[in-house]
Design a protein around this nucleic acid. Structure first.
Length: 574
DNA sequence: GCCGTTTTCGGCCCGACTGTTTTCAGTCG
């Protein structure tokens, strides 16, 4: 993928320039351009082709030229030159927590350290403390940082981070002096992966709260402990940051601590233009560097209002158009968990699920759902005990029987049907037509080239009984890359064939992702928010499907399973 | 290197904590 490759090059350049202590704003420009590239749903080559590169945020004439050069030649002369000018290992040295460009340069200039290994050795032999401004404490911190680096290379899944963060909040919330407490940071924004957990507390006695926090049973090591701010490391290598402010500043601190960084920068720029100043303590009238009166800060709504903005839901705070929309009062009313009327993707013990259909149905009804689709695997997927046509018939019959027991709740007949290697489906049409909801998905041939996989999916969507495309990219977060699929073509074809697309809420999948789900909804494609449940507790994954949907700016109208039963059945028909 | 209802130059978000110092630079988020 061009976008990812070019973004990586720009990030690399930024890192090298950082080491060279080049202009910080130039460095930021490269980083911003990389962020822009990663958030695009279309191939950057399309923008290059119709000369619209500079219409993208953060891409000016110079970077547009560089993008064109990469697209044309596969590389960038300036980048090659920069890479040669700096030993490769230095970039790794700079990624150690606590080591930035200045320390890396000092270490390189004085001790010829150009790799993490050499740094480790030098620190262990106490060679660092011979240098100016470095003493034993720094040596220890660097060794600790190296340990952390090898431990925490991967970002944590939202499905791991959110429960962990909720655990900390539950532990602290009843402690003396805690007036308000909330999860902040990327966990609150519901990003699919999380680096560390941020918690905000309002209290009149910050040091007391800091002490409670650093003495939690989860704490393995205290990384920092100040008057209003502390960081700890848990046994599992998870970093948790706590910030404590007074109640009057809580809203401003929550905005600041929730981020994203890009959103905060835009908010603060907007304030400056209005002659205001925003920090984590509030919104202030300001003249030059002089701060005058505080005009907001207690609640987030108040802070946004002071800048003439509607309240912006945390999931949208990525500087992807939410500030412009909030200025014009046109933020979407995001889909919420209570809008969801049923789960569409649940496996029973007919295939690889753990529970009987009746048990699943009872649980779903008790959750307040109006329907559930039992969508077991099809015959070819032997590893998941896919159903033969006879078994499927037997299952359908059982569903008919069970439905007589339920009032105001319906079990729907479904299947997750394999897309075979030639793009045909794993059941014939006369079997498919007996089903209420047919998911189609790829479970084989992941390594095929993009053209082939894409054609398979397009062909599958041509089938009039293929209602929903399931986990469209096949990725497993931190475990398996998406297969090569031209998602842009898939979305266009989904629109043409009236095929819905799944947002699979399984914490390892979250597939479709937020960026592409937003593109799909913009095209008018319906999204199915599902859990891909195999055990009853998996039904809770719906919260993550909703999280992706909210990050994708989806409203209730975009979600297939926010529809009442009859309308759902109608909407599924092609 | 980008950007512009303060527009082609001169800005570019803002503050806490640490380790090393005696007032601050470096790093981080």
């Amino acid at each position: 993928m061009n976008n990812q490759k070019i973004a990586d090059i720009f990030d690399d350049i930024a890192k090298i320039l950082e080491f060279k202590q080049d202009n910080i704003f130039k460095i930021r420009a490269y980083q911003k351009a990389a962020v822009t590239l990663r958030s695009l749903t279309e191939d950057i080559a399309k923008y290059a082709k119709n000369s619209s590169l500079t219409s993208l945020p953060g891409i000016g004439k110079d970077l547009a030229d560089k993008i064109n050069e990469i697209l044309k030649t596969g590389t960038l002369k300036v980048y090659q030159g920069l890479k040669k000018s700096v030993p490769e290992g230095l970039m790794d040295v700079m990624s150690i927590p606590g080591v930035g460009p200045k320390k890396a340069k000092l270490l390189y200039d004085e001790l010829k350290i150009d790799s993490v290994e050499k740094l480790k050795e030098a620190a262990e032999k106490h060679k660092l403390s011979a240098l100016p401004h470095l003493k034993e404490k720094t040596e220890q911190n660097i060794l600790q940082g190296i340990k952390l680096l090898s431990k925490a290379k991967e970002r944590m899944l939202l499905g791991e981070a959110l429960p962990a963060a909720e655990g900390v909040v539950n532990y602290l919330k009843d402690k003396k002096g805690v007036e308000k407490i909330e999860i902040a940071g990327s966990t609150r924004r519901q990003k699919e992966t999380i680096r560390d957990i941020d918690i905000l507390v309002a209290s009149e006695n910050p040091p007391e709260i800091i002490k409670e926090f650093t003495h939690m049973p989860h704490t393995e090591k205290i990384l920092a402990e100040g008057r209003t701010k502390a960081s700890v490391l848990t046994g599992r290598g998870l970093q948790i940051d706590l910030r404590v402010v007074d109640v009057e500043s809580y809203g401003a601190a929550l905005v600041y601590f929730t981020g994203s960084k890009e959103h905060n920068i835009r908010i603060r720029e907007l304030a400056i233009k209005k002659g205001l100043k925003v920090n984590e303590y509030g919104v202030f009238t300001a003249k030059g560097t002089k701060i005058n009166k505080k005009i907001a800060g207690k609640t987030e709504t108040e802070v946004y209002k002071a800048l003439n903005l509607e309240f912006i839901p945390p999931e949208l705070r990525e500087d992807k158009g939410e500030i412009e929309a909030a200025l014009e009062n046109r933020l979407p009313e995001l889909v919420k968990p209570s809008d969801i009327k049923g789960d569409l993707h649940v496996h029973s013990n007919y295939s690889d699920g753990a529970h009987a259909i009746e048990e699943i149905a009872n649980t779903c009804r008790d959750m307040g759902y109006k329907y559930v689709v039992i969508s077991d695997h099809s015959k070819s997927l032997k590893i998941a005990r896919g159903l033969s046509e006879e078994e499927l018939k037997r299952k359908n019959k059982e569903i008919d029987q069970l439905n007589k027991k339920f009032k105001n709740f319906k079990i729907l007949k479904g299947s997750e049907v394999d897309i075979l290697s030639d793009g045909t489906l794993d059941y014939p049409d006369d079997v498919l037509k007996e089903l209420d909801a047919v998911f189609v998905s790829i479970h084989s041939g992941f390594k095929q080239p993009m053209e082939k996989i894409t054609e398979r999916i397009l062909k599958a969507m041509d089938n009039k009984y293929a209602h929903i495309l399931s986990h469209p990219t096949g990725r497993l977060l931190n475990a398996r890359d998406p297969y090569a699929v031209d998602i842009d073509r898939v979305l266009k074809h989904a629109k043409q064939t009236h095929t819905a697309i799944e947002i699979n809420g399984n914490v390892q999948r979250l597939d479709l992702d937020d960026i592409n789900a937003r593109a799909a909804a913009d095209m008018g494609i319906k999204l199915a928010l599902t859990t891909d449940t195999h055990r009853l507790d998996n039904l809770q994954f719906m919260r993550y499907a909703v999280s992706v949907a909210r990050r994708a700016w989806l409203t209730r109208k975009d979600a297939l399973n926010a529809l009442p039963l009859q309308q759902l059945l109608k909407a599924l028909k092609k």
